[in-house]
Computed example of a mutant assay.
Amino acid sequence: MIWRLILFFMYVFPIPFIGIPTIRTTPIFATVLLVVGIVLWSIQSYLISQFITNPKKMAKKHQRVRDTGKITQAEILDSQNIGSEDGYPLKNLLIRFKNLAGNPVKAIIQLIDSKEHEKRFEPGKTIDLKLNQRGSDPAFTFGEGEFITESRPWAWAWLIFNIVYMIVFFLVTYYFKNEGYGWRFLNPFTSWLWAPIAGISILKYLLKSGIEQDIISQYHEISSSNSKKDIGELLLYGRSTEGEIVSYGQTGLYVNEQPQLRFNMKFIDDIGNTVNKSFKKVIPLTKLHELKLGKVEVLYLPRNTDIFMISFVD
């Protein structure tokens, strides 16, 4: 359903706007807009191409960490089957390991269990990890096995369709609106120009969301706004401690019909100071009943305590 909406707004929604009254511009300004439009459509095509190239880039990053990373052992705290891949179980493992700063941290890693009968990934067992010593993307990788990438024929089809659509959409618009004035129908409100702007925004959101998720994901339910882009550094150099949710309440703002809440919390940092934090977070209505006051597990970055994640303690 989400993909239908995305494709609708990128390719169907702009078409009716071809029929709006034409605003003629000067030849020079129209030529500038023509170039701008081509650049915007090229950016949109480039972003689509990242659905093809990103898995391979990710595989290379993991291989580099496997070749150069520091080996450590992680304890499996929980193992869940979340589906299958090529006939083998796809698992989410909740693991705990000591990071490069010597602190115990938790994370979730996804892998394919090609030898399920050996029960290698049962809770209580250990697996080898390689920690990234030359950056934080990714923070670590699985010490054995192979990082499998998809060929993604749908992404190739999407890229080709986008390029063809760009050309056809311009030619159709030109046919109905030029009236002997060439491309002087181009103006800032022409759908051929603003359509790729909307598409670029949608694609950037998709690429940042879980659609392009790595095999590593966070264990903690709630994270500060800064922690998403710094999750690798947080896992490699963060410190775990006990904190407390002092209060929380709705701000009155809703995002996609989900309420935004303000949390007030505190924890003790590595030098014994009490750190007070207030942050806002959009919480799904289905998760509101899980919120509570009291103790939380905090993973924070000593160099910047605004970068943290928390999970509720049962």
Rank of each mutant, 00 (worst) to 15 (best):
Arg66His: 13
Asp67Thr: 10
Gly69Pro: 04
Lys70Tyr: 09
Lys70Leu: 10
Lys70Gln: 13
Ile71Phe: 01
Thr72Cys: 12
Gln73Gly: 07
Glu75Gly: 07
Ile76Ala: 04
Ile76Thr: 04
Ser79Gly: 04
Asn81Gly: 12
Asn81Pro: 11
Gly83Arg: 09
Ser84Thr: 15
Ser84Asp: 13
Ser84Cys: 01
Glu85Trp: 15
Glu85Asn: 11
Asp86Met: 09
Tyr88Thr: 05
Leu90Ala: 14
Asn92Ser: 14
Leu93Ile: 06
Leu94Cys: 00
Ile95Pro: 02
Ile95His: 03
Phe97Glu: 02
Lys98Ile: 00
Asn99Phe: 05
Leu100Ser: 07
Ala101Gly: 10
Ala101His: 05
Gly102Asn: 03
Gly102Cys: 05
Asn103Glu: 14
Val105Tyr: 02
Lys106Phe: 00
Ala107His: 01
Ile109Lys: 01
Gln110Asp: 02
Gln110His: 13
Leu111Gly: 13
Asp113Asn: 12
Ser114Ala: 13
Lys115Leu: 08
Lys115Asn: 12
His117Gln: 12
Glu118Trp: 02
Glu118Phe: 04
Gly124Leu: 01
Thr126Trp: 03
Asp128Cys: 00
Asp128Trp: 04
Leu129Asp: 04
Leu129Ile: 06
Asn132Ser: 10
Gln133Lys: 15
Arg134Met: 10
Gly135Asn: 07
Ser136Ile: 00
Pro138Arg: 10
Pro138Trp: 07
Thr141Asn: 04
Glu144Ile: 12
Gly145His: 11
Gly145Ile: 09
Phe147Ser: 05
Ile148His: 14
Glu150Arg: 15
Glu150Gln: 15
